[in-house]
Computed example of a mutant assay.
Amino acid sequence: KMVVASAAMENGQPSFTALTAAAARAAHLVVDGEPVIFADTLALALLGERAEELLSYHTSHGTHPVLAGARAQVTCRSRYTEDALARAAGSGVTQYVILGAGLDSFAYRSGGLAGRRRVRVFEVDHPATQDWKRRALAHARVTVPDGVTFVPADLATGALPGLLAAAGFDSSAPALVSWLGVTMYLTEDAIAATLAAVGALAPGSEVIADYMLPAELRDDAGDTYGSLVAQASAERGEPWLSCLAPDEMADLARAAGLGTVRTVPQRDAIPAALWQRSDALRPADLAMLLHGTVPPRG
């Protein structure tokens, strides 16, 4: 229940959300000014044949609240997560699990932790999205590092621990788990089940997940984005099923066995200096990050 299959995937296309998230990361480097929040230098290549079309929305209508909101959303959550990964790797964590990996490019950007073989990357996603990504990487002449393992998963397959174990994951060693852009498409029960799987990982493991706030907790910018995007997602067959208040998400995490649970609003996900901007990016009360840690046992 970690990833969501849609009609597009059944036709061999990646999920639309994977494409739009990558397009927003790519567009940040084209449309927005300094300071750069997050430099995803491979996002454009991973969009393959859809690159020009998807980027054009941002280049033509970059200040539109939904498009600017999308760019703020994806760059902030990616920046926060990769900063946390760098800290974890610095303290000896050698495994990075990306649930619903989509077109995430961490493992392929030159000089990344994966390239130096210090961190093994497990990309968990629907096979259709993974196939698209591998073709796009090959077309862009980007090699898949030895430290990357694709873990195909969809709604019909088994639980996360078994999938990871079969892919060579060391369950006795801590990992950082990234779970971005997925929870809103899942029921609360499915979110709880995945958090429980993370809670069973080795002590010291961390999870970073984003989740959408319910309408009454959003500000005006967040509510404009939320209502328009939720409607568009539903029309594409990828409806939002869960919007959670921070205390509700924290309760799910604690019930799953996670110890320290932090709630990070978009404004606080990146260094404050990065909000000193002359472009359209502004922090919104729309989504939050959950950052939980598996406590020592005993």
Rank of each mutant, 00 (worst) to 15 (best):
D247V: 14
A23Q: 04
G222Y: 04
R135N: 11
P214Y: 10
A273L: 10
A27N: 07
D104P: 03
W179Y: 08
K1C: 11
L137V: 08
A156G: 12
V142D: 03
P246D: 05
K133V: 06
I191W: 00
G100D: 03
F38C: 10
V294L: 02
W179P: 04
D131E: 15
G237Y: 06
Y185F: 13
D210C: 03
E216H: 15
H64N: 14
A23Y: 07
A215D: 13
V124P: 00
L195V: 01
A70S: 15
A165N: 09
E49R: 13
L85D: 06
A7T: 15
Y80A: 12
V36I: 14
H139C: 11
D104R: 03
D189V: 13
L217Q: 14
A167H: 10
L290Q: 01
T183S: 10
G199F: 05
P239T: 10
R297E: 09
P145D: 08
N11M: 12
T224I: 13
D285N: 10
L281M: 14
A269S: 13
Y57Q: 13
M9E: 14
A89V: 06
K1T: 14
A86C: 08
G292C: 05
V74C: 00
A284E: 07
P161R: 09
H58Y: 15
A234W: 11
E49F: 00
R71W: 03
A26G: 03
F38T: 01
T263E: 12
C76T: 15
R297T: 12
G257P: 00
V261N: 08
A175R: 05
T224K: 11
E188M: 06
A232I: 02
V148R: 01
M184Q: 12
L186D: 00
D170S: 08
L180E: 04
A24I: 01
Q231G: 09
A232V: 07
